[in-house]
Design a protein around this nucleic acid. Structure first.
Lengths: 212, 212
DNA sequence: TAGATTGTTAATCGATTAACAATC
DNA sequence: TAGATTGTTAATCGATTAACAATC
């Protein structure tokens, strides 16, 4: 079974669906329509149906989608039907904050190792994980079958860390450093730079004050 | 002067340009072409030229863009040619981490107030700011002319916090909680949910292992 | 002058939305 | 049966890329 070419926009919406469906399930809701989903998630219902239809026929005409079934399908599509192990480099404030999300990610992903280049950080315990030195990265990634890496180091060190991740055989990287990182073809990289988000927001504020 | 209708995609690239231009300036580079920019930022040069041309003629044919001049122009477009004050609600790990970016944001934005609904947090000092109670939010937002709000509370409290921000007169919100928040027309909201980013990355890992 | 590079128009590409037959 | 809702095709909309005249 080959999925011909799913756009990144579609893939990015799947976790949003998943999250809301999980909430519905927790509230014992059995079925949901694209209409409901669209209302709650601020998305067009046709878009939701189309997104899901890329991967199969998950709904029932006249009824909607079975919540539990759709959850399982999306988890399978995202390949998080088994827990995926994640490593994090950069044991600063941000790294510490993100490692706290393990509880939230439960069943889907797990941050299982934290590394830091500064010897002062090594050995420190964060969220039950002992910070490891960069020398241990390669071996740990392989031993623990870590597939995804998170970068929370300063911009100046981010590229080096990415290179280390790639060397170690990691397949996808989430970079929080405010810098564009280059990786070889075949490695997936997403940039999650909050300073970019924040500065772009300023564009939308009212500049009436500028009139003198 | 009316800018007819700039797409969000364009606005989101402006801070990326700004960041790299600042780096060039720090290295005493005077001029840069869309070609150079595109290479470094993994963007099409034509797209960069078009993005900038939305706002005016900033370049010189045969030469490129004057780095300092373009920086000033972009800062002006983003309305960060004067420091914009920002408030943050949620003095947890993530809030603490983000408040550390003040140094990085310097000249453009400044987190000037931190709030938390839990009395245990109130009074705690984070990054030279004393955490305030939610009761003080409205007055502080007005006194300090805070225009943008950041939400770093759990998902269950995020909507309430957004409502408080809106009441206080904030114009744009950056929400880190993993939930879709609703705001009235005219208020800008961006969702910066790292769990969505992380889960979507899993789609791109190699699932060869699934073959039994 | 020759080479480089912009600003902009036209062409392409892709994503979103509307509409509706199929069907629960 | 009547109402609801999917999956999907067609229409629309918008964003990216190519191409090139203008010009430094």
């Amino acid at each position: 079974m080959k999925t011909p070419k799913i756009s990144e926009a579609v893939v990015r919406r799947l976790p949003v669906y998943l999250r809301f469906l999980s909430e519905l399930k927790a509230n014992n809701v059995l079925t949901v329509s694209s209409q409901d989903l669209g209302l709650k998630l601020d998305l067009n219902p046709a878009q939701i149906r189309k997104d899901l239809a890329h991967f199969g026929e998950f709904g029932r005409k006249g009824i909607g989608y079975d919540v539990s079934y759709l959850i399982e399908k999306i988890r399978s599509i995202l390949k998080i039907d088994r827990v995926i192990n994640v490593a994090l480099v950069g044991a600063g404030n941000l790294g510490r904050a993100l490692s706290n999300y393990n509880a939230y990610l439960k069943d889907n992903m797990k941050i299982v190792a934290i590394f830091d280049a500064h010897s002062g950080k090594v050995g420190e315990v964060i969220n039950n994980l002992s910070v490891q030195s960069m020398e241990e990265l390669n071996a740990t990634v392989n031993q623990r079958s870590i597939r995804i890496g998170i970068i929370t180091v300063p911009a100046s060190e981010a590229q080096v860390v990415a290179d280390r991740f790639v060397d170690a055989g990691i397949e996808a990287i989430l970079n929080f450093a405010p810098v564009i990182i280059k990786v070889p073809q075949g490695i997936r990289i997403h940039h999650a730079d909050f300073t970019t988000d924040l500065l772009s927001l300023a564009y939308y504020i009212d500049d009436a004050e500028e009139q003198v």
